[in-house]
Computed example of a mutant assay.
Amino acid sequence: MSESTRRSPRVTAKDVARASGVSQTTVSFVLNGAAGHVSQKTRERVREAARTLGYVPNGSAQALRKGASRIVLLNVEGVPTGSGLGSYIRGLDAELASHQHVLLVLHGHLSSQALSDVAQAVSARAVIDLGDAGHADALATGASLTAFSAQADVPVRYLVERGHRHIATVLPDSPELRILAGLRERLMRQAADTAGLADCPTLVLPGAPEAAGERLRSFRTQHPEVTALAAYNDDLALVTLAAMRHLGLRAPEDLAVIGFDDTPHGALFSPALTTVRLDAESLGRIAARDALGLPTDGLAPEPARVIVRQSG
């Protein structure tokens, strides 16, 4: 075959995603005009990668175009359906409705390509992908979603004010939550560093109290200096308290424990769970405006605050 008849392999969206350091879903959204939740910096990076590689989207991808419908997709795969997420969705739905848009919530285990296919099928105006939070472009660069997952400095500051200098992060031993949990872990470490703490080790706990108790026993042997545990969410904080009870430990005397998200059942446990409450409904409204490309003036959420109970 002559040189002139040889064809270079066709550049795909996956190639653009790899070159720009984002997800394939995000590439699809950016190049087809449905990227209201993606930062301008990330959009430019994706477009530059596409230009450099010579990427040409196929015809079916053009179905995903901004304004093609009044549907906004929210993917919540792997995100615990606690009170914070419920309030977030209510705010998101209400704000979209006020701008004559409809929210479609997806709960399934979708690949990036499957999510892109759904978005194309309904000609989505925008997609908010909480299930892809490990990609900085999908979550960490959107102001509202950053606030929803972040504010990790709140429990750290609270524990430091209570005299704790050795704080550990408690994360779930769950593949479905590894992306969001990884983000929370990084933010907790940043908050600990800002507070001047020497270290912020991570304790990964399974859901069963006895197994969690053995994991906690081993962790305390390795990190006897730790006096406080900041859990990924309230559910995991309650597993932590159950594991402590299994070992004969008390909160906060032996270990202080603080949760995140202020779910209703935290107040019913003994000891009652100290936790962090977010203004998740306002965050949902901000996300709605971000997705539609509208200004978010006047929608600043109330700061996250600690609900002080008995455990920490």
Rank of each mutant, 00 (worst) to 15 (best):
L64A: 04
H99C: 04
L96A: 07
Y88P: 08
H37C: 07
V76E: 09
Q100V: 13
R47D: 08
G59N: 15
S83N: 09
A35H: 05
P57R: 02
L96Q: 00
T26R: 04
A35M: 06
G33K: 04
A49M: 01
T12Q: 08
V38H: 01
V22L: 00
R18S: 03
V11Y: 09
A50N: 07
T25C: 08
R51T: 12
V11T: 02
G78C: 09
N75Q: 13
V102R: 15
G33M: 06
S20W: 08
R90M: 04
T25L: 09
A61E: 11
D93I: 02
T42C: 11
L74Y: 01
N58M: 09
P9G: 14
V56P: 13
R10G: 01
A61T: 10
P57G: 05
G54L: 07
V16A: 01
L73K: 06
A17R: 01
Q24E: 13
V79N: 10
A97D: 02
E77S: 12
T52M: 11
Q24L: 10
R18T: 07
Y55F: 09
S60L: 15
G86Q: 12
A68N: 11
R51S: 14
R70Y: 02
A94C: 06
V22P: 00
L64T: 06
T42V: 15
L103G: 00
N75K: 12
A34W: 04
H37D: 10
T42N: 12
V30M: 12
